[in-house]
Write a protein that binds this DNA or RNA. Structure first.
Lengths: 112, 112
DNA sequence: CAAGTATATGCGTATATGCTCATATAAAGT
DNA sequence: ACTTTATATGAGCATATACGCATATACTTG
């Protein structure tokens, strides 16, 4: 078990910002699309069914947060997941949601 | 290692919502204040230096997200962390940020 | 039942942010 | 140099949400 020291106000803000970056469905779609490796913008536009402008913006947000990394190759720009903690983070959250939904589902049948 | 299946659009939304709940500094302050156990609203108002109305609202948001649990005792309402994955989540994010800052700090002194 | 205390909530405002359209930039080919 | 293709970005609009103020609700005590 790790000890919890209180976070400074500044650290708290950074944590909030990081969660905030992950709090958009389109950005999660992009992250998910990159789980199996690097892709360029056009591919991501197709996969996520978003507009080019919007995808580009979100990619920038994710890159600025150091969650993705950018590599330019000729006309294309390739993005990949740069932060190794992202998969684990998603796993933890998904697990929590699954448990929560299971509990709620159980509440319906618990009486019978 | 857990396998990654693609998340449904609905699941994606739930994940985004959950991150969104954690994306507010005041809510993180509240969570942090509750790491060492149950507290009532007045105590939380004092600890976080927020207004009573604002603290109350954020507590409601956190409770609706099943992150906190509410227990009423007389006039007071006690809140505690209900979701056991929250501490781990915070650890992972803090770790990622620390690494990121360390790397950025290193970039300044790397040349010498 | 009146008064006091702890918590919740309705409402208005300010700010942030996601989206779209149009256009700019950058690199490649002709 | 001009055109084409891939990506980024400026501007405007629409929506969400955090906050403060005032007030409502819930419970306790006299």
């Amino acid at each position: 078990m790790t000890k919890h020291r209180a976070l400074s106000e500044e650290a708290l803000l950074l944590v909030a910002q990081r969660f905030s970056v992950l709090a958009e469905p389109m950005r999660l779609r992009l992250i998910q699309a990159l789980f199996d490796g690097e892709k360029n913008v056009s591919e991501l536009v197709t996969l996520t069914e978003g507009t080019q402008a919007n995808v580009s913006r979100h990619l920038q947000t994710l890159t600025a947060a150091h969650i993705l990394a950018r590599r330019k190759e000729g006309l294309q720009v390739y993005y990949k997941i740069a932060d190794p903690t992202i998969p684990r983070l998603c796993e933890v959250v998904c697990g929590a949601i699954e448990k929560q939904l299971a509990k709620q589902a159980g509440a319906f049948t618990a009486g019978r």
